[in-house]
Design a protein around this nucleic acid. Sequence first.
RNA 1: GCCGCGGUAGCUCAGUGGUAGAGCACCGGUCUGAAAAACCGGGUGUCGCUGGUUCGAUCCCAGCCCGCGGCA
Length: 320
Amino acid sequence: MSQQEIKPITLMGATASGKTEAALGLARLLGGEIISADSRQVYKRLTAGTAKPDGAWRGEGAERAYIVEGVPYHLVDFLDPKSSYDAASFAADAHRLIKEIKSRGKVPVIAGGTGMYVQALWSGLDPLPPADQAVRAELTAFAEKEGRPALHARLTALDPEAAARIPVNNIQRVIRALEVIRISGKKISELWTGRFHDALPTHLSRFIVLSWPKKDLVERVRARTLTSFVRWEAETRALLDDGYPDDCPALKSLGYPQMIDYIRGAADQAGTAGKIVRVTMSYAKRQATWFGRYRNVPRVDASSPAGLLPENLLKTEEAA
RNA sequence: GCCGCGGUAGCUCAGUGGUAGAGCACCGGUCUGAAAAACCGGGUGUCGCUGGUUCGAUCCCAGCCCGCGGCA
């Protein structure tokens, strides 16, 4: 098989939908390596709370890789919890890895629940300037002092078209639009090309969305939350003990704020676990909404007996 | 048994003689370098039951049922 004929497979699905299991099955069947598209599993030390696949770093130098059940699993467990990562960095890293994996004659299997990362990887981003944390800090301080309407008013003055599309309270997007003007001197509304559409390029990759009935998914989330709770508490406590602030990027991840409240005695265990299940299901709904936009991508009922088996996933793909 | 208080959304409660609201929960959606982020939208209800007064009752009146507290 020539390199050109190796087509990556991209698995998407809500949290706890079985993406890791499915990806490992496909990688073993086809001879593949996995690239995680998960904005939280990138962090070192966030393991139980992110359901990071159980693996270990092996090898040296260029050969060094995180190995899960014998399969290289890329873009997990490499970033300090105080560091930031983003969709553009992910897309660049993933494109580089896809090329490398193909050069080894292996099949790239991209698996993840971060819809924004999948979108950035396969549909690309407009040529906007990169993030600037100093600019963001300054604009955040302004909003805290003068209020969000005042910040939004600044955007209305500089880029009325963008301001009309961004709600006053959506502080992050208001800041981003102002950041673009500050750095590039151009309006974000003029840099948008409309490439953010509701279809994925199936000539570049095979895409599969894993879906579950909500009543089954909530049981999986509940079970996972309960079995990981003690380890999750321990890893969170260790991060706090080592001086990581509550608001560092990693600790703002889903469930960690609730775990921090629990550690500080502000909530009991049952209540905390229940709250975490709720915020997780709320996230799963947002993921389902995101992936639901891709009308040209087949969906697999992962709850069926053969649901996550690689042969079943490939068969469904062909039928679509 | 008597006295008092209460019964309104899934939960905790507010409220009005013109068929009703909040918080949480729940449901739906948005998404261009923070995306497990940041937001937007939706009330989902025999106002305990049965009568009475009234043009009109969730509200006022009576009886009943249920819960809580007190007295026996």
